[in-house]
Design a protein around this nucleic acid. Structure first.
Lengths: 335, 335
DNA sequence: CGCATTAGACTAACATTGAGTATTAGGTGG
DNA sequence: CCACCTAATACTCAATGTTAGTCTAATGCG
C-alpha cells in the first residue's frame, strides 16, 4: 500500500516532468469548534493534510483525491469540491525537496463528526490551531496583538508612498479598527502574514521577508509544504459558501437543534451570531423541517429537533445560512 | 517561436507523465455584447481559447499563462484569476489525441475593449455564439425551444424514479417555468446539455449520451478540446463575481456613462436590468465618481461621464454592481 | 419552590429592493 | 425656431429584509 501522505521527495508520477499532488482539507464540526483532519505518521515529520500524487489509474482528479483519502482514513467522502491549484516553484516543490515542478491541487471535503476515527495516523484538530487569529467567537483573540504589532512594524519601516500601499493592504485583509471583522478574508490575511514573514514557513521556503526569522514567528503551528495555504483557502471558501449554499448541513447530524446549527456556523465563521435572527433566517428560508422529536439535554428548556429539508437543494440553488452580509459594519464582538 | 495554442498532440512538457495546459478566457465587453478572444490559425482547425503548455521556465502558473497570452496576442494582461483545473481523461486528452494524462487549468482575464487587435489569428467574438441559450437580454432566446425539447425528451424516456431525478436536475439548471432566469447557472446548464448529448463535443469525446449525434446537435459552435467547458466556467464565475466585487470596471474605459456601465453588466449577465435601480445602487455603493465632463452622443439628453472610484478596492473588499440577488423570483423578461 | 438556563416568540427602527412615474436637457426635422 | 424624440436623471411608494432588542415558556437542579 502506498502512503497517502508523502513525506519524502521523489514519490511523484513523472520523472523530470510535472508532479501533481492532491491534498484535501477535510472538515467536520463539533459544537466547540471546526475540525480538520491531519496526518502525522510520527512526531519527527511535520503535520500534513491528507494527500497523495495524481496517478494514471485515476480517471478524474476528484476520483484520485477520493481514492487517496479513502486509503488513508478508511471511508468514502461525500461532499467534495476543488479549491485551487497552486504551482509556485518554491512554496511547494522545494519544500519537499523535489527536483522539478510540482503542482498542488487543493480540495475541500465536508464530513459528519460521527465519521471521525483516530487510527491510521490521522487526527481531528481544531483549524484554529493553525489560524489562532481567525477565531473571533469570544471577541478579539489574544494573538491579534502580536499580529497587529508585526504588521505595524512592517508598515512603519517603509518609505512614504510604499507605506501607504502597505497600510492599504493591511486594511483590506484585516479591516479598519472599527469595521466588522470580515471572516471571509482568511486567505488574504494568511498571504499577507506570509509575505511579511510573520509565519514560519515563509522563512522555510526562503521567501523574501521583512520580519526576521526568530522575532516574528507566531506560535501558530505550521503544516507540511503549502498545506497551510491550502487550509486557508479552504477556510475562506467555506466561510463564503455557507452564506449562499446550504453546505453546513453536510456537517450536521441527521437531527439537530437550532442552537447546534448556530454553533456550527459560528465555529466555521469564527464569529458570534444573534440568536433570534439566525433562527428566523433559517426558518424563513425553509432550510429545515420539524422531526417532531425534542431533546432535553440542552441545559434549559427542551429544544425541538429539526432536520435539513433535502428539497431545498433542488428548489433553491442559492440559499445559505444566516450570516451578516459583509458590508461596512462595525465589529460586533468588540464589547 | 512556439505556437501558443496547440492544435496537435504531443507538444506538451512531459513524455509519459502529466501534461498541463493553461487556457485563458479573455473577456472584454462592447456595448452590444460580451466578447471572448479566440484563436484559429486556419479554418480547418477548430476554434480554441488562447492556451499553451506549462513549462519549466514559468515560475508560477499565472506567469505561465500570462507569458503564453502575451506571445499570442501581443500585450500584457491585467486582471487574471484562476478558474478551475480539469483533469477528466476523455474530455481533454483524448480530444487532442494525447497519449497520457492531461490537466487543463482554466483562467479568466478581463481586458478593456480598446486593447483588441485582430492579427495573430486571434479574434474577438461574442461569447453568446457558443452559448446562444444564455442571452436573455431580449426575452427568451430562440434556441431555448430546442433546448427544452431535448431536455423534455431526455426526461420523458426515463423510467419512473429516474425520471423524477432528471426533472430535478433540469430544474436546478434551468429553473422552473415561472422562476427568474438564474444567469449564474451557465456552467451547470452546459454540463447538463453535455451529459444529455445535446452538444456536439459530447459525441466527439465518446461520452455516453442519450441524444443521437445528428438529431440533437444545437447549432451553437463548439471549441477545441474542453475549451467550451472552460468558457462556461468563466461565464458562470464572472456572472457571480460582478455581484460582490467591482470587477466590471476592468472592462470599462476610463470614463463612461451610467447607461454604458449598465449595458456592460447586462451583456455579461445576459439579462435586462431596471435602469433607475441600477443607477441608485451603483451611486449608493460609492463605486463611481463624477469626472465633470459630459457626453452628448447619447441620442437624447447628454449624460455625465463618470469614472470608477479606485478607492473602493481598498475600502470595501465586497461590493459589486447591481443585479437581482438570485432568490426565487419570476422571470423579469417574460413580457 | 425558586432560580438558572436555554428555547422560542415577538417588535420597533431602519435599510434595501423592485417597480413605477415625472421631469429635464439635449438633438433633429420640418 | 419650435415640436418632438430620446435618453438622462430625479423622485415616489410599497414590500421586504435586517439589526438589535425584549419578553415569555419550559425544563433541570438545589
Amino acid at each position: 500500500m502506498t502512503r497517502a501522505t508523502r513525506q519524502r521527495p521523489g514519490v511523484g508520477t513523472a520523472q523530470g516532468g510535472v508532479t501533481v499532488d492532491l491534498s484535501a482539507v477535510i472538515v467536520s464540526a463539533s459544537p466547540d469548534g471546526p475540525r480538520v483532519l491531519v496526518h502525522q505518521p510520527d512526531t519527527k515529520h511535520p503535520v500534513a493534510l491528507p494527500s497523495g500524487p495524481l496517478e494514471a489509474r485515476h480517471r478524474t482528479l476528484d476520483a484520485g483525491l477520493r481514492s487517496w483519502v479513502e486509503e488513508l482514513v478508511g471511508y468514502r467522502l461525500g461532499y467534495v469540491e476543488q479549491l485551487y491549484t497552486f504551482g509556485d516553484a518554491n512554496r511547494h516543490a522545494s519544500a519537499l525537496g523535489q527536483p522539478s515542478r510540482a503542482l498542488s491541487i487543493g480540495y475541500l471535503a465536508l464530513v459528519r463528526e460521527s465519521r471521525a476515527r483516530k487510527d491510521h495516523d490521522v487526527t481531528w484538530v481544531s483549524w484554529y490551531r493553525f489560524f489562532p487569529w481567525e477565531d473571533w467567537r469570544h471577541g478579539e483573540p489574544a494573538v491579534m496583538a502580536r499580529v497587529r504589532e508585526g504588521i505595524a512594524g512592517w508598515i512603519a519601516e517603509a518609505p512614504g508612498d510604499e507605506r501607504k500601499h502597505r497600510e492599504e493592504r493591511a486594511r483590506v485583509a484585516f479591516g479598519r479598527p472599527d469595521d466588522r471583522w470580515n471572516e471571509e478574508m482568511a486567505l488574504e490575511r494568511y498571504e499577507l502574514l506570509y509575505e511579511i514573514g510573520l509565519v514560519p514557513e515563509a522563512h522555510r521556503d526562503g521567501a523574501p521577508c521583512w520580519a526576521p526569522r526568530e522575532a516574528a514567528i507566531l506560535e501558530a503551528e505550521s503544516l507540511l509544504a503549502d498545506h497551510r495555504r491550502i487550509l486557508a483557502t479552504g477556510i475562506s471558501r467555506l466561510r463564503g459558501k455557507i452564506k449562499y449554499r446550504p453546505v453546513v448541513f453536510e456537517l450536521m447530524p441527521p437531527r439537530f437543534t437550532f442552537l447546534q446549527l448556530q454553533r456550527t456556523v459560528e465555529a466555521l465563521a469564527g464569529i458570534e451570531l444573534h440568536k433570534p435572527n439566525f433562527r428566523r433566517l433559517v426558518e424563513h428560508q425553509g432550510l429545515v423541517e420539524e422531526t417532531g422529536a425534542v431533546t432535553s439535554n440542552t441545559g434549559g428548556r427542551p429544544a425541538r429537533l429539526i432536520r435539513f429539508r433535502r428539497d431545498v437543494l433542488l428548489e433553491r440553488p442559492a440559499s445559505g445560512v444566516g450570516l451578516p452580509t459583509t458590508n461596512s459594519r462595525r465589529n460586533s464582538t468588540s464589547n
